[in-house]
Amino acid sequence: MSQKRVLLIIPAYNEERNIEKTIGQILSFPPQEGFSLDYLVINDGSRDRTGQICHQHGYPCVDLVQNLGIGGAVQTGYLFAARQGYDVAVQFDGDGQHDIGSLNTLVAPILSGDADFCVGSRFMDGTSQFKSTALRQAGIRYLSALLRLLRRLRISDPTSGFRAAGASAIAYLAEHYPVDYPEPESLILLDKRGFRITEVPVNMFARNAGKSSIDWKRSIYYMFKVSLAMLCACMGEEE
C-alpha cells in the first residue's frame, strides 16, 4: 500500500513572532510510518516580516498578493492540496497554538477511512492546556448547541481551527469555503453534503504572541454573524 500524503496548511497573518517556533515544532516532529508530512505556509498579506522570515529559512510559503482573511487563506491551502493530490490536509495555525503532538490522533480517523473530516477538540477530555475565558467558552457552547439543533451534529469545539480533511473533503473545501470566521459554517456545509464528520481530543497551547483574531468586544457581533451564516448555510441550496 502506498504511503499517504498529509499536508499541513498554515495560515499566517502578521505572525513574525510565532512562525519560526511553529515551523520548528513541525520540523522536530518525527517521521511517521503511516504517512509522509509536508507543510505550506499561507502568508495572508502580512504587513510584518512573516513572509521574509519564511523565505529566509526556505519554508514553503505562498504569499497571497493581498489579504484575504482566514477563510480565503485556508482555502488557498485546500486548493493547493487538491491540485497536488494530497490524501489529508490539516489546518494548523501559524500562531503556535496547535500541538503537532496531536497530529496522529487528528488524522487517524481519516487515514483509517472512518471519517472524511475530523475536528480537533480542546474540550473533549479536558487535557488540553488551552485556557479560555468564561465568555468565550459560553460562546463555543452556544455554537455547539446551534450545530446540534440545526444539523444534529455533536461537535464540542466547533470553532477549533485544528482540523483534518480527507481527499473528498479537500476537493469540496477548495471550491466552497466560507470567508469570515469559517469554522462552524464549514461544518454545516460539509454535513449537508454528506461528509462524515468526527471529533477527537487534541492539545492546544495558549497563544505565544500577537492578538487573537477575535477580541471579546467583537464577540457579540461574531456570535450574531456566525449564527446567521450557520442558518443561511443550513437553508442554502444543495449544489
Binding site: 505562498v62 504569499d63 497571497l64 498578493v65 493581498q66 484575504l68 482555502q75 486548493l79 491540485r83 470567508v179
Partner: peptide, 21 residues
C-alpha cells in the same frame, strides 16, 4: 465580485508559488 477577486488572488498567488518553486 468579492468572490471573483478572492479566486483571482488565490490563483495568482499559487501560480507565483509554483514559478518560485
Amino acid at each position: 465580485q468579492s468572490d471573483q477577486i478572492k479566486r483571482l488572488t488565490q490563483f495568482i498567488s499559487l501560480e507565483q508559488f509554483r514559478r518560485m518553486c
